[in-house]
Design a protein around this nucleic acid. Structure first.
Length: 497
RNA sequence: CGGGGCGUAGCGCAGCCUGGUAGCGCGCCAGCUUUGGGAGCUGGUGGUCGUGGGUUCGAGUCCCACCGCCCCGACCA
């Protein structure tokens, strides 16, 4: 495999390998001894923490509280909601014993489950928490005064996937799941859409990632939901990636777990539900959306290190003067930015540049004798463009401005890419002809039909990503790009992660 | 689970055909010299050659079995 000297396969050569190389080169993750699982390394976890901080603030601002529900769910809970079982049964991990005992394995000391410790009822490792949460909601909700109930939890979950990819799809992953209960359907739908909006603005502000909000077709819908909303993002290779989902659950879980409230009219009624989540998949999304052949590129808001200062000196005397000057620069920026002074010895400046570029630091300030004389620093952006001096006087504002521009540049590039690679086609043959060479979103008039949707997937490996919330009126009077029947929706089809 | 590939130092690999002292590059450690785009020299550290069995005076190399990983097809945020 051809690689750059950094050990990163170029995107054009092999996009999947490029992605894996960038993750490793930036030290975001490492392989785990358990197939399908991953270790999130400090530099990767810091990105997730930045996402958590910002999302958590947005959840609190919209009235939600955090709580924590158990990792283990009684097996019987999963069977309570018919669609839900159907959707998750095939990918659940089970705990069946609570004790090991020592034994002989090939003459060596080993361990095995103690048959005496078999659980009466196996425990499911949560693939999502609707069932255990709605079990609890039954006892917490009695009156309309208990509603709405707006709870979020940060947790890990396990879904036994066949094909995994670091961050984008792993057996265990980290996420947040919001679970809300409401007195009316209208209010629940409003909540579902509000949280989709929170995700969309989060993606735009923090990830510099434009997304298309939409509704999933029946076959892509969350198991147990009435409606599943999504924000779909586009990666650099034109593939779609679901960046967040929000579900209107109707009364399905309230019915399954018998959760009712007494309304103002004295009647007992089933409550209405939503759930919504984003996961560590977003770390992968950001990497795939913005990085390049040199390595990681991060929007400044997510960067564990936003500004790195690289000192340059000749000789011991100059070294100490430069280092103290550079420390001053660091101290001036530290209150407002995540800044690092790279004062390691034994590395030439160029080696440091490459390292921090690989790790996605948005802004590098080079500090050498010439800069010190002029009372400035020499600034280089990870996203390219000419290097330029920044005066110490007003440095904080200059850095803030540069970081804002970097975010804006990333966002604009992603918007442009999505616009250029969203194709409007009217016929299936045109779709097939262009899918391979012009991978992207294909916006088409579509007659909603489960079997036809499955057939398209089978024939083209492209899936129906969403019915975009915007622009549905375009479908009126048009015919389905595949069957020629009257179109019911405008749909986006794409290859997807 | 079907098809293909691969297991030798932290990483990338050679050695296997044709059995005979386990090697190379990078990294890592120490010292000296270096520092405006990947530093140089010197010295050093690091291995149950995936596991188990067999053949042999002798196995990384040959034979058998097993295990694991990666890629491609059956699930999904």
């Amino acid at each position: 495999m051809e690689r750059t000297p950094l050990g990163i396969t170029p995107r054009a050569k092999d996009y999947s390998q490029w992605y894996l190389d960038v993750l490793q080169a930036a030290e975001l993750f490492d392989y785990s001894p358990v197939k399908g699982c991953m270790v999130i390394r400090p530099h990767g976890y810091a990105i997730w923490e930045a996402m958590q901080r910002d999302l958590d603030r947005r959840f609190k601002e919209t009235g939600h509280q955090n709580a924590y529900f158990p990792l283990f769910i009684p097996q019987s809970f999963l069977s309570r909601e018919a669609e839900h079982v159907e959707g998750f049964a095939k990918e659940c991990a089970l705990v069946t014993h609570h004790r090991l005992r020592t034994c002989e394995v090939d003459g060596k000391r080993g361990v095995e489950p103690d048959p005496e410790s078999m659980l009466e009822e196996p425990l499911v490792v949560r693939p999502t928490s609707e069932t255990i949460i709605w079990h609890m909601y039954r006892s917490w909700i009695d009156s309309h005064r208990d509603l709405p109930l707006l709870i979020n939890q940060w947790a890990n979950i396990v879904r036994w996937e066949m094909k995994t990819r670091p961050f984008l799809r792993t057996t265990e992953f980290l996420w947040q799941e919001g679970h809300t209960a409401h007195a009316t359907a209208e209010e629940a739908v409003e909540e579902t859409r509000r949280m989709l909006g929170v995700y969309a603005s989060f993606a735009s502000d923090m990830l510099a990632l434009p997304t298309i909000p939409g509704v999933k077709s029946a076959s892509e819908r969350f198991a147990g939901a009435v409606d599943t909303y999504t924000i779909e993002a586009m990666m650099q290779n034109g593939w779609a990636l679901q960046a967040g989902t929000s579900h209107f659950l109707g009364q399905n879980f309230a019915r399954a777990f018998d959760v009712t409230f007494q309304d103002t009219d004295g009647q007992r009624k089933l409550v209405w539900a939503t759930s919504w989540g984003v996961s560590t998949r977003l770390v992968g999304a950001v990497v795939m959306a913005h990085s390049d052949d040199v390595g990681l590129v991060l929007p400044p808001a997510l960067a564990p290190i936003q500004v790195v200062i690289v000192p340059i000196w000749k000789g011991d005397d100059e070294r100490s003067r430069i280092l103290s000057y550079a420390a001053g620069v660091r101290d001036a920026l530290a209150p407002r930015f995540r800044v690092r002074l790279d004062d390691r010895e034994g590395f030439k400046p160029g080696a440091k540049y490459f390292e921090w570029e690989r790790k996605g630091v948005p802004l590098r300030l080079e500090v050498g004798p010439r800069d010190m004389e002029k009372g400035s620093v020499f600034a280089a952006r990870r996203t390219g463009g000419p290097k330029a001096p920044m005066a110490l006087d007003g440095l904080e504002e200059a850095v803030a401005g540069a970081l804002d521009e970097i975010r804006a540049g990333l966002y604009e590039a992603a918007v442009r890419r999505m616009a250029e690679r969203t194709h409007r086609v009217a016929t299936f043959s045109e779709f097939v002809a262009r899918l391979e060479a012009e991978a992207g979103f294909f916006l088409v008039p579509w007659h909603d039909d489960h079997a036809e949707e499955a057939a398209v997937k089978e024939e083209t490996r492209a899936t129906l990503r969403a019915y975009p919330l915007e622009g549905q009126e375009e479908a009126r009077g048009r015919t389905c790009f595949r069957t020629g029947r009257p179109a019911t929706h405008m749909a986006i089809f794409a290859r997807a992660y």
